[in-house]
């Protein structure tokens, strides 16, 4: 009984009850009851609106995620293995890490126009420094002894990369991917809100203009559920698989 009380589902049900209570007490359109939100969610799914906008946002997420991860991984490994270049670029990396996402998004739209390329570029530029920093750290901590062993046994470049370097970098890559998904989808919403005519960010903007809080919450729930599923069904199993030798 006691363990049931502390189960994550219990906390979720408790939150719903709290939300319901607060909605009844406030009786305001600013906080619709859970039931009203789930009703909007159901209607939006049935009408096809939500799947369309969700699909558009997920497509942008996939493209920018792949670009940011591959570019960031390559640059991170390169800097991690070349001390002098790392020193040369280090300050720039810190500067890019601290540029607000909003500034990058606005500048990309100004420089490249209100198009898909600008939208993707804005997301990639925002995420890139984060991936570089994580993978650079991974490349710096590569086990020298194992690299020497691979050289002594004439592993060759490909075998060394696949069996010696890659497994050491994988936890860093997964770390970058997990924080990456969380960061990228927030930036994508901003990008869509400021300069696109479809996607979740655009829809949220519409709901905001109409003061439709139920719509905002319904779309948020759907999006968070999808991102959580990607985390639970793809990233976490990959992480577990990569660490199975530690058992």
């Amino acid at each position: 009984m006691r363990s049931l009380l502390y189960h994550p589902i219990s906390s979720f049900l408790l939150f719903l009850a709290f939300w319901q209570g607060l909605a009844v007490i406030l009786a305001s359109p600013a906080l619709p009851a859970p039931q009203a939100v789930f009703q909007v969610l159901y209607q939006e799914i049935r009408s096809g609106n939500l799947p369309f906008h969700l699909g558009v946002t997920l497509a942008r997420l996939a493209v920018s995620f792949v670009l940011a991860m591959s570019l960031g991984t390559a640059i991170g490994i390169f800097l991690g293995r070349h001390e002098k270049l790392d020193r040369f670029f280090d300050h720039w990396l810190v500067i890019f890490l601290n540029v607000p996402a909003l500034v990058t998004v606005i500048l990309c739209y100004v420089w490249f126009g209100l198009g898909e390329i600008a939208a993707i570029a804005a997301v990639v530029v925002n995420k890139l420094p984060n991936v570089v920093v994580i993978l650079r750290e991974g490349a710096r901590t590569l086990d020298r002894d194992l690299l020497e062993m691979a050289e002594a046994y004439r592993f060759g470049r490909l075998k060394t990369l696949l069996h010696v370097i890659w497994p050491q970098l994988f936890p860093f890559l997964i770390g970058a991917a997990r924080t990456g998904i969380a960061l990228i989808w927030k930036i994508i919403l901003l990008v869509e809100l400021l300069g696109r005519s479809n996607g979740m960010g655009y829809q949220l903007h519409l709901f905001f203009q109409m003061f439709d809080v139920a719509g905002i919450l319904a779309y948020t729930i759907a999006f968070v559920a999808v991102i959580q599923s990607i985390e639970a069904l793809v990233l976490k199993p990959l992480d577990v698989r990569a660490k199975r030798w530690r058992r």
């Binding site: 194992l146 062993m149 497994p167 030798w245 530690r246």
Partner: peptide, 15 residues
């Protein structure tokens, strides 16, 4: 053909 046995075994822990 040179084989090298180091002071520590240097085995890949993930293999």
């Amino acid at each position: 053909r040179i084989a090298y046995m180091f002071q520590n075994p240097r085995l890949l822990p993930w293999r």
